[in-house]
Computed example of a mutant assay.
Amino acid sequence: MPLRQTATAMALALFAGPAPAQDAAELIGDAGRGAQIYRSCVTCHQIGPGAENRTGPHLNGIFGRRAGSVEGFDYSDAMDRAHGDGLTWDYARLDAYTENPRALVSGTRMSFRGIKDAQDRHDVLAYLRQFTASPQDIPESAPTAILREVDLPPEVLAIVGDAEYGEYLASECLTCHKRDGSDEGIPSIVAWRAEDFVVAMHAYKQKLRPHPVMQMMAGRLNDEEIAALAAYFEDLD
């Protein structure tokens, strides 16, 4: 499932009830296979006994950990903002972040482009899960359970936004975000790819992204208005 579907689907899933208790491997994925996939990550992120920070922070205890909270690691401004917003690494957010880091945390300096295959992500997260305290005891409970997914309707993803209408709507956005694309404590949204903008706004709308003001703003917008804003800011230079 593409990120634009997965991120919003997982966001909706946060408010669904937990899945029935099942075998942990069935709930999440194949940890052995995930360890093999994770080999491409170890140059930046260590995990396991003696793990240290490298280019990225260590990933021991990642489930349930607040973003940007590993002591001694110099995080990007974007991750510091996510920390201030209260972003916490539960399963839904880890899944969305590993699929496309920049769609969940705008401006992250993590250059990794993401794992597009859903099963690959589930397997990697099953591997990471082994390094959170006693995960085998809580296969159906937070912070590592997979909740029921609700798909974003495909017709929402197919909306072609009206950029002129988006310009009309954008005045409220531009009270904080800069029209010239500068980043002064608030991430730039100029020249975003439209689909990334739509994903981010739906993530706020469904409370996957934790910023309360943006949750309120996105909650006021319907699907056509979000698409219109996305079209406007994509072409803004």
Rank of each mutant, 00 (worst) to 15 (best):
residue 163 A to R: 11
residue 4 R to D: 13
residue 235 D to V: 13
residue 165 Y to L: 15
residue 204 Y to P: 05
residue 26 E to D: 13
residue 220 R to H: 13
residue 97 Y to K: 00
residue 177 H to M: 13
residue 175 T to G: 13
residue 229 L to P: 05
residue 78 A to R: 04
residue 10 M to L: 15
residue 107 G to K: 05
residue 155 E to C: 05
residue 105 V to F: 06
residue 168 Y to K: 15
residue 143 P to N: 05
residue 175 T to R: 14
residue 56 G to D: 01
residue 180 D to K: 10
residue 213 V to Y: 12
residue 37 I to K: 09
residue 57 P to V: 03
residue 60 N to Y: 06
residue 229 L to K: 01
residue 175 T to V: 13
residue 14 L to C: 03
residue 224 E to G: 03
residue 234 E to N: 07
residue 60 N to M: 05
residue 210 P to I: 01
residue 192 W to G: 05
residue 1 M to Q: 01
residue 184 E to T: 13
residue 40 S to V: 08
residue 152 L to R: 11
residue 56 G to F: 03
residue 44 C to S: 00
residue 39 R to Y: 02
residue 180 D to Y: 11
residue 186 I to W: 11
residue 85 D to Y: 15
residue 106 S to K: 13
residue 86 G to Q: 04
residue 32 G to C: 08
residue 119 Q to N: 06
residue 170 A to I: 09
residue 38 Y to W: 14
residue 194 A to L: 05
residue 237 D to R: 14
residue 232 Y to F: 15
residue 9 A to E: 12
residue 91 Y to W: 09
residue 221 L to Q: 10
residue 151 D to Q: 11
residue 142 A to I: 04
residue 194 A to C: 08
residue 48 G to F: 06
residue 8 T to L: 09
residue 41 C to D: 05
residue 121 R to L: 07
residue 42 V to I: 15
residue 232 Y to C: 09
residue 200 A to H: 05
residue 203 A to C: 14
residue 174 L to Q: 04
residue 6 T to A: 12
residue 115 I to W: 05
residue 149 E to Q: 13
residue 75 Y to H: 10
residue 72 G to Y: 07
residue 118 A to G: 02
residue 115 I to G: 00
residue 228 A to Q: 08
residue 107 G to W: 08
residue 168 Y to A: 14
residue 233 F to G: 04
residue 2 P to T: 06
residue 151 D to S: 14
residue 124 V to A: 05
residue 156 V to Q: 03
residue 59 L to E: 04
residue 162 D to T: 08
residue 48 G to N: 02
residue 154 P to L: 14
residue 202 H to D: 13
residue 162 D to F: 13
residue 47 I to N: 05
residue 121 R to K: 00
residue 34 G to M: 04
residue 38 Y to G: 07
residue 127 Y to H: 06
residue 146 I to R: 10
residue 34 G to L: 02
residue 98 T to N: 02
residue 46 Q to P: 02
residue 136 Q to V: 09
residue 40 S to W: 00
residue 19 A to Y: 00
residue 177 H to P: 06
residue 108 T to P: 01
residue 209 R to S: 10
residue 42 V to H: 04
residue 40 S to D: 13
residue 111 S to D: 09
residue 195 E to K: 11
residue 181 G to H: 04
residue 123 D to V: 01
residue 229 L to T: 03
residue 160 V to F: 02
residue 47 I to M: 09
residue 87 L to P: 00
residue 77 D to Q: 14
residue 24 A to D: 10
residue 237 D to K: 15
residue 145 A to D: 12
residue 125 L to W: 02
residue 52 E to G: 04
residue 27 L to G: 12
residue 146 I to F: 07
residue 100 N to C: 07
residue 137 D to K: 07
residue 212 P to S: 14
residue 201 M to E: 10
residue 181 G to N: 06
residue 103 A to F: 03
residue 210 P to S: 15
residue 110 M to E: 06
residue 230 A to E: 07
residue 55 T to N: 12
residue 34 G to Y: 03
residue 56 G to L: 01
residue 171 S to V: 15
residue 216 M to V: 09
residue 16 A to D: 12
residue 17 G to H: 02
residue 17 G to A: 11
residue 236 L to S: 08
residue 223 D to Q: 13
residue 151 D to T: 11
residue 43 T to C: 01
residue 89 W to R: 01
residue 227 A to H: 01
residue 67 A to R: 02
residue 230 A to Y: 09
residue 222 N to F: 07
residue 121 R to Y: 03
residue 173 C to F: 14
residue 35 A to N: 02
residue 193 R to N: 14
residue 95 D to F: 15
residue 210 P to K: 08
residue 105 V to D: 06
residue 94 L to K: 01
residue 130 Q to K: 12
residue 130 Q to C: 07
